[in-house]
């Protein structure tokens, strides 16, 4: 239960806004930290905290790309293949990532460890190819540094 496991965090989030509804996005972040994705249960809990209908929370989850509606791997690797990154080799790079992981972008490795996404510009176009690994930036990636990182994660 979010309410029991993250009570202090929930209070902090609610205190940031004059309405409970405004807390829905940060609460979804907490829920996602807790459950790994925005499960139906997570959505119901967040809805209850914000005094909202679960369908309203579900529409928020559906709208924003960073909320996962389905289970993802322990590590989510978001590789940018938007125009500026693509000018610096991002398409070839992400093709390499797919080969290395043995999955297509959008999929999760069979052991449930790594999910690969292709994402739109993450505002680090000057350091392409670039990825966010569970939200943390990894700049100036090469097939070699990517393989190293993946080997580490797969251990």
């Amino acid at each position: 239960m979010l309410r029991t496991n993250r009570a202090a965090d929930i209070e902090k989030v609610l205190a940031k806004y004059p309405t409970k509804r405004s807390a829905v996005m940060p609460l979804l972040n907490l829920a996602q930290e807790e459950y790994g994705y925005c499960s139906p249960e997570a959505i119901r809990e967040v809805a209850a905290i914000c005094d909202l209908d679960p369908t309203e929370v579900k529409s928020v989850v559906g709208f924003y790309t960073m909320y996962y509606e389905e289970k993802v791997g322990t590590t989510v690797i978001d590789v940018c293949d938007d125009l500026p990154c693509a000018l610096r080799g991002a398409d070839g790079f992400i093709a390499h990532c797919e080969r290395k992981l043995g999955i297509k972008a959008g999929e999760t490795t069979a052991n449930g460890k790594i999910t690969l996404h292709s994402v739109m510009c993450v505002a680090a176009c000057n350091r392409a190819p670039v990825a966010q690994v569970n939200g943390a930036y990894r700049y100036d990636l090469t097939p070699e540094t990517f393989d190293q990182m993946v080997d580490e994660l797969q251990k």
Partner: peptide, 20 residues
């Protein structure tokens, strides 16, 4: 082949925003 790979990635690759 490069363009085809790019297109294939696009159809299911990113975590798309739901249409409303």
């Amino acid at each position: 082949p490069e363009y085809k790979a790019e297109l294939a990635r696009d159809t299911h690759g990113h975590h798309a925003q739901a249409a409303h």
